[in-house]
């Protein structure tokens, strides 16, 4: 999972900024995870499940590919 963490990028920090500086805690409460998990996802230390990824995208009202991007580590 750590390897895939390196290849999955996200724009959560930017999207939080554009949503009235939404805090990690507010996002965590809406998604149903702990604030530490949101922090780990944002920092690339944890790749969320598909369900949590969709929930995060839903909170921001964006399609999932605008929140998470797969970056080919080999390329």
């Amino acid at each position: 999972m750590a390897q895939s963490g390196k290849s999955i990028r996200n724009r959560i920090r930017i999207l939080r900024f554009h949503h009235d500086e939404m805090t990690q805690q507010q996002l965590a409460d809406q998604v149903g995870v702990t604030r530490q998990t949101v922090n780990a996802i944002e920092g690339g230390k944890y790749s969320p499940s598909l369900e949590v990824a969709f929930r995060i995208a839903h909170v921001f009202g964006k399609p999932i590919e605008e929140v998470f991007q797969f970056v080919d580590a080999s390329g």
Partner: peptide
């Protein structure tokens, strides 16, 4: 602590 419930990261 604020939340006492384990989430998917804790379980993994």
């Amino acid at each position: 602590s604020r939340s006492h419930e384990a989430d998917e990261r804790d379980r993994l």
